[in-house]
Amino acid sequence: MHTMRQAIRWGDMDVLGHVNNTIYFRYMETGRIAFLEDLNGKFDAKGQGPVIVTAYCTFIKQLKYPGEIEVRTYAGAPGRSSFEVTHEISLVDGDGKAETVYAHGGGKVVWIDFQAEKSVALPERIRSQLPAVEA
């Protein structure tokens, strides 16, 4: 699991006064990239790295400005060139706790050769840090 916190920005809200639904995908993206950079370091667009091929989100409660959120990112077991990630987005309360989930979602990450635009096997340095495949 990877955890990160960030502020809800005033510009994240829409005309209805809550965080716009598209911004939740940005929150998950920020968490996913931080998680992947912790695993791999910075990426070079001339080499190999991750792309996301599916994304989904379930909205449970409205987030509003001002506030701080916590994004928890979990990785699934690896396939040949891909693995699933899931995210929980929680509001940080006045005590600094982030127990109530406001949204959850995820997606599928595929490792590709950026120049060839084709999937490649997950590098061992990434695979070794993901949960084991269940039998």
Rank of each mutant, 00 (worst) to 15 (best):
K61S: 12
Q62S: 11
K64E: 14
Y65E: 07
Y65C: 12
Y65D: 13
P66A: 10
P66N: 11
G67R: 04
G67P: 05
G67Q: 03
G67L: 02
E68F: 13
E68G: 11
I69H: 08
I69F: 01
E70K: 06
E70T: 10
E70Y: 00
R72I: 15
R72G: 14
R72A: 14
R72K: 15
R72W: 06
R72S: 09
T73C: 10
Y74P: 01
Y74N: 11
Y74A: 15
A75F: 02
A75P: 01
A75Y: 03
A75N: 06
G76I: 15
G76V: 14
A77W: 11
A77C: 14
P78S: 01
P78E: 00
P78H: 06
P78A: 13
G79L: 05
G79C: 03
G79I: 07
R80D: 08
S81P: 06
S81I: 12
S81Q: 11
S82L: 05
S82Q: 04
S82M: 13
F83L: 06
F83C: 04
E84R: 15
E84D: 15
V85K: 00
V85A: 02
V85W: 09
V85N: 02
T86D: 04
T86F: 08
H87Q: 08
H87F: 13
E88Q: 08
E88M: 07
I89W: 03
S90I: 08
L91N: 00
L91V: 04
L91F: 09
V92G: 12
V92T: 14
V92Y: 11
V92S: 08
V92P: 09
D93F: 09
G94A: 10
G94Q: 12
G94N: 13
D95I: 03
D95H: 08
K97S: 03
K97D: 13
K97P: 01
K97R: 11
K97Q: 12
K97T: 13
K97I: 00
K97E: 07
T100G: 07
T100C: 09
Y102I: 00
Y102F: 06
Y102A: 03
A103Y: 10
H104E: 09
G105R: 04
G105D: 02
G105W: 09
G105A: 10
G107M: 10
G107E: 05
G107W: 11
G107I: 06
K108Q: 15
V109A: 09
V110K: 02
V110H: 06
V110T: 06
V110Q: 01
V110S: 00
W111T: 07
I112P: 01
I112T: 00
D113V: 13
D113M: 05
D113I: 07
D113H: 03
F114C: 08
F114E: 04
